[in-house]
């Protein structure tokens, strides 16, 4: 799998990361190397279609909680990190 600069840039935009030119070089080289190692291995094994994909080692069912309201007490600690206006978080106009 070749990872060209264009594709790397597209992926970077998907995850909202801007890379410096230096970083781009290093990352592209590293990822190419990893993919080569992986592709070589994947080519040698035959993964059965019917094999079930595993999401997590957790084998028990989900535990649900009751529909009860609880207030988070430490409001100041929760919201104080970045400046807010009139109780709202704010960012540049999105539209």
């Amino acid at each position: 799998m070749s990872l060209e600069k264009e594709e790397l840039k597209a992926i970077a935009e998907m995850v909202q990361i801007e890379m410096t030119k230096e970083e781009e070089e290093i990352i592209q080289k590293d990822l190419k190397c990893i993919f080569k190692l992986m592709d070589d291995q994947l080519q040698k094994i035959d993964i059965h279609k019917e094999l079930k994909p595993m999401v997590s080692p957790c084998t028990h069912p989900n535990r649900l909680r009751q529909d009860k309201v609880q207030y988070f007490e430490e409001k100041e600690e929760l919201l104080g990190a970045l400046p807010m206006k009139n109780g709202y978080f704010y960012v540049p106009n999105v539209l």
């Binding site: 206006k85 009139n86 978080f89 704010y90 540049p92 106009n93 999105v94 539209l95």
Partner: peptide, 12 residues
């Protein structure tokens, strides 16, 4: 989201 000239305000 509330969009204004000053910016977009967010209420979670």
């Amino acid at each position: 989201l509330i969009h204004t000239k000053e910016g977009t305000f967010i209420d979670y």
